[in-house]
Design a protein around this nucleic acid. Structure first.
Length: 564
RNA sequence: UGGGGAAUAGUGUAACGGUAGCACUACGGACUCUGACUCCGUCAGUCUAGGUUCAAAUCCUAGUUCCCCAGCCA
């Protein structure tokens, strides 16, 4: 008789469509059973969460199938590419945890081979040098609904083309004056096949090849062959390259070289953010954020500085799945991933973000007690620490309310609450300034409740975090919120730009939060849950010894806030 | 009015002719020295219209909607 356990075991883990294709390839004996993937960034910007999806997909597949994963920079446009980006990208990928072993590759390493292949196509009558300038070429290309016209230079002889191409390489022509084009079909309904450019003349300093070349291969003439050279079995890319696949096929077949299988998937979109390199660059250049690693940016370095762990980003990429549907993932998924990770990993501490002083009138003046607190209530192995308690403490301003509703389980005159790991206290009086603002609370404590339990068995509904006033560490704490205030910020409002969608409250700096003294030694990059507040990350750049600065990674869920 | 893709709860993603499942969100409840975590529950879905079949998300036909392509960018 089947038990529930039996039926649960029968459920197979679901396979995404790429895994299904690879399963089928392996079953058919393709590629000698090998799986080899790659991540091919252009070093012209920083990596963001969308790239993480691709990195996790590609490196994850290689790991799953016992295959290999390459990192290859597609660096064919020296005008936009820089070593700085190469360094930042390799750092980010390493941090994310993808391992390319000794296979750090560059398309620019294949420039000689690519040149030879171009000559091969010329000799085969499949490529020609064209004298049309950029504007003329556009006119000849036709439109989406009308075929293009053949270039007047299309029928040059292989000998003439070879000689002209050699001259291009030798620097005999000015930039933009000539191109090498594939001779395919100017009437093709697929515009990518209307004699695409293979080489252009561009006198620019390349970050790796320097000034060796004045002609550079186009991406289309480089990408597929680079995959081929590296023996990439499954060339996984985003949907917009689907239209290019016939062109890559044409190059591989015309050249008679190994033919990787290209598979396209939908890129990641997230609510409340923009993902395009252009817009991210604009945010940085116009200083709407503090740089590429601003914790509000969904760049990998920004997320890292916000306190997101690599494991949480990997888990996120795993959960969102892979498909061909253009989807937009709710930002809540990202937050869920980091909360999930940090909930088990982060030690707890007490920090009062918006302090309100409390004087415990019946507590002896000058007395200090060292109380024991658990570093992680669900995980005793993380040990305990000591927190000092004294007559004057700080609590959170939001933990007091004058005319409190019944469901408010915190402080109000006459109400009793527990101070975590300390005592029960009862509020007796409120002190206000001239404007009527609450500036101080007067309370009494019950000495019998030391440690947080009442011998008479009475219960309190609320437990508050607190910090001893005289022992408190004053620290800067940065509260981050969504950079944009609208779900689809890429869509500019009528007559405006996406910048109009920026959230003016995305950063709040608290100059004088009061933290428990043990945090004075917090190492840069260490992470804590400030109980009842959220997860915080000691900023690696601005923190100084004895003066940590904390970035809020994520808030805790707050069902009380929702009720109100 | 060219070509290439895609449509399953609010958001994602499974089911590959045989009980539409899972996760996130939302909303209830239990538990709680974190209004956290955890646990339990509720709401909610096959783009439309025909057809084939004992049986259709799945196969066929016709439509609808959305995305991509006219860089010497990638």
């Amino acid at each position: 008789m089947p038990t529930p356990t039996d039926s649960a075991e029968e459920k197979k883990p679901s396979r995404n469509f790429i895994q299904q294709i690879i399963d089928a390839d392996l079953a058919a004996g393709k590629n000698d059973g090998q799986v080899h993937t790659r991540f091919p960034p252009e070093p012209n910007g920083y990596l963001h969460i969308g790239h993480a999806k691709s990195i996790c997909l590609n490196s994850g597949l290689a790991r799953e199938y016992g295959g290999k994963f390459n990192l290859r920079f597609d660096d064919t446009n020296p005008a936009k590419e820089e070593q700085e980006y190469v360094d930042a990208i390799t750092d980010d990928i390493r941090w994310l945890g993808a391992d390319w072993e000794d296979r750090l590759c560059f398309s620019s390493n294949y420039f000689d081979q690519l040149y030879d292949w171009a000559v091969q196509l010329i000799q085969a009558g499949k490529a020609y040098v064209c004298d049309l300038d950029a504007e003329q070429m556009r006119e000849y290309r036709g439109t989406l609904t009308e075929p293009g016209r053949d270039s007047p230079f299309r029928d040059r002889s292989p000998e003439e083309n070879a000689s002209l191409f050699a001259q291009m390489k030798a620097g005999d022509f000015p930039d933009g004056s000539h191109t090498l084009r594939a001779k395919i079909d100017m009437a093709s309904p697929n515009v990518n096949l209307r004699d695409p450019v293979m080489y252009r003349i561009k006198r620019a300093h390349h970050h790796r090849t320097g000034d060796t070349w004045c002609i550079y291969p186009s991406y289309d003439f480089t990408h597929g062959q680079s995959d081929s050279i590296e023996g990439i079995t499954h060339s996984i890319c985003t949907l917009e390259f689907e239209n290019h696949r016939p062109l890559y096929d044409w190059f591989c077949e015309s050249l008679g070289i190994f033919h990787p299988q290209q598979i396209e998937f939908a890129r990641l979109n997230l609510t409340y953010t923009v993902m395009s390199k252009r817009l991210l660059l604009q945010l940085v250049n116009e200083k709407h954020v503090d740089g590429w690693d601003d914790p509000r940016m969904l760049t990998l370095c920004g997320l890292r500085r916000r306190g997101y762990t690599a494991a949480s980003i990997r888990a996120f990429c795993e959960r969102i799945g892979v498909a061909k549907f253009n989807s937009t993932i709710d930002m809540a998924w990202l937050e869920d991933a980091i909360r999930d990770d940090l909930n088990t990993a982060a030690p707890r501490a007490m920090g009062v973000l918006r302090p309100l002083k409390v004087v415990i009138e019946n507590y002896p003046e000058g007395q200090v007690e060292q109380l024991e607190a658990a570093n992680h209530p669900q995980n005793p192995e993380m040990g305990t620490r000591t927190v000092p308690f004294a007559r004057e403490i700080y609590v959170e301003q939001g933990d007091f309310m004058e005319d409190a509703p019944r469901k408010f389980f915190r402080l109000s005159v006459g109400r009793e609450v527990r101070l975590r790991y300390a005592y029960f206290i009862t509020c007796t009086d409120v002190i206000k300034d001239d404007q009527g603002n609450v500036v101080e609370l007067r309370c009494t404590y019950d000495p019998e409740t030391k440690g947080g339990n009442a011998p008479d068995g009475r219960k309190v509904k609320g437990t508050l975090h607190w910090v001893s006033a005289q022992h408190a560490l004053s620290a800067e704490v940065r509260l981050y919120d969504y950079l944009f205030g609208t779900e689809a910020p890429g869509k500019a409002p009528e007559g405006g730009t996406f910048l109009d969608n920026l959230n003016p409250d995305s950063l709040e700096v608290l100059a004088d939060a009061k933290l428990e003294p043990s945090l004075v030694d917090a190492d840069p990059c260490s992470q804590f849950q400030f109980e009842r507040n959220g997860y915080f990350f000691a900023d690696p750049i601005d923190s100084k010894p004895g003066k940590p600065i904390f970035n809020r990674t994520a808030t805790l869920r707050d069902s009380w806030k929702k009720k109100r």
